[in-house]
Design a protein around this nucleic acid. Structure first.
Lengths: 179, 179
DNA sequence: CCATTCCTTGACCGCTCGGTCAAGAATGCC
DNA sequence: GGCATTCTTGACCGAGCGGTCAAGGAATGG
C-alpha cells in the first residue's frame, strides 16, 4: 500500500496500472485482488489512512493547550511537519480533490479538519482574541494559506517546514498589514 | 473547445474520451484531429486561453490605480468574479496542477500571476503600507486564500463572488487578529 | 464541367487497461 | 500422510482508449 501510494504520487493515479504496482512489488496480480476489491478501493484506503494519521499528529501536537490561538499555531506547525514528511500523500490529496469518485472520501476527512479548526477559532472569537467575523470563512482562509504555502515552499522548493509554518502563522494572525 | 472544456470539467480529463467529445459536437473524429494534434494539446490550449483571459480581466480591473493595496483588492475582486463565471475552468486548473504533463503549461501562467501580485506587494512594502516580510511568501499566502475561498464558497456553495472577495480581502489585510 | 484543394466521415487499428480465474503452492490441522 | 483451507500465480478477457486513414462530399477557380 505504501509502494502504491508512492507510485500514484509520482506517476499519477490513472497512468499507474495495477500491473505496474504488482510488478514493482514482485508479486502476481491475483494477490492484489485478493487483498483489495479494486484499484479504486485501494486508493480510497490510502486516503483514509493518511487522513487518520494527519489528524492524530495534529491532536497530539495540540495536546491540552488551553489558548485557542496557540492551538492553531501548534496545529499549523504539526501539519507542515507532516506534509514535509509525507509529500507524496499531499500530492494524492490534491489529486483526489479533482476526481468526483474520490471527493466523497476526502470531504469526510476534511470536514473533520474544518470542524477542529473552526472550534478553535470560535473559541478565540468568544475570548475576544480573534476578530469577530464568520468563523467558517476564517477557517477556510487559514487552510488555504497553509495548503498553498506548504505546496509551494515545502513540497516544490524543499524549504524547512518550521520556517514555512512560522510564515503561515504570521500571515494568518496579522495578514498583510500587520500591527 | 468550449464544449470540451465543460466535458473535461464535469467528467474529468482521463474519463472523457475524444469519441465522446466529437459525438457531443455531432461531428466525426477526423475533424477533431484536423484542428488539434492530440487530446493533450487541446487541453493545453484550453488552459492557455483561460489563463490569458483571466489575466486580461485582472489587468483591466486594476487599470491605472496608483495605490498598491487597492490594486490587490481590485485584483481579488476581479478574480473572484471571473472564477464565478468560469467555474469549469477553475476545476481544470486544479486538475492540471496534479498532472506532470500539464504542470509546465500551468506554471508559466502562474508565474505571471505571482509576478503581478508580488510587484504590488513589494511596492506596498516600500511605501510602508504592508508589513516588512518576504514578499514571495505574502504573495503565495494571498493566492492560497483567494483560491481556497473561491473553491469552497463560490464553486461548491455558490455564494456571491463579491461577498467572498470581501471576506478574502479582509483576511489578507488583517488576518485573524485584526487591527 | 472538370480538377484541385479543403474539409469531413467513421470504420478500423494497435494497444493498454482493470479485472477474472483455472491451476497450483503453501500452510495448518487431524 | 491426507485433506482442507489459505494464498499466489500469470495467461487471459472484453472493453475502451487515442489516433489513423481511405474514401468521399463541398467549395473554389479556371
Amino acid at each position: 500500500m505504501d509502494f502504491a501510494a508512492h507510485r500514484f504520487a509520482d506517476n499519477g493515479y490513472h497512468p499507474t496500472s495495477v500491473a505496474e504496482i504488482v510488478q514493482g512489488l514482485g508479486v502476481g496480480k491475483g494477490v492484489f485482488y485478493w487483498y483489495f476489491p479494486s484499484k479504486e478501493e485501494l486508493f480510497v484506503e490510502i486516503l483514509r489512512e493518511a487522513q487518520r494519521d494527519l489528524r492524530r499528529i495534529q491532536q497530539q501536537a495540540i495536546g491540552d493547550q488551553p489558548d485557542p490561538v496557540q492551538r492553531i499555531e501548534l496545529g499549523i506547525l504539526a501539519t507542515m511537519a507532516w506534509l514535509d514528511e509525507h509529500r507524496h500523500l499531499s500530492v494524492l490529496f490534491e489529486f483526489a480533490a479533482t476526481e468526483d469518485r474520490f471527493a466523497p472520501a476526502l470531504s469526510r476527512g476534511r470536514e473533520v479538519a474544518v470542524g477542529d479548526l473552526a472550534r478553535h477559532i470560535k473559541e478565540g472569537i468568544v475570548e475576544g482574541r480573534i476578530r469577530d467575523s464568520d468563523p467558517l470563512v476564517l477557517t477556510y482562509a487559514v487552510l488555504g494559506v497553509v495548503n498553498h504555502l506548504a505546496r509551494t515552499f515545502i513540497i516544490e522548493r524543499g524549504d524547512p517546514p518550521e520556517q514555512v509554518a512560522n510564515a503561515a502563522i504570521a500571515f494568518c494572525l496579522r495578514g498583510l498589514l500587520g500591527r
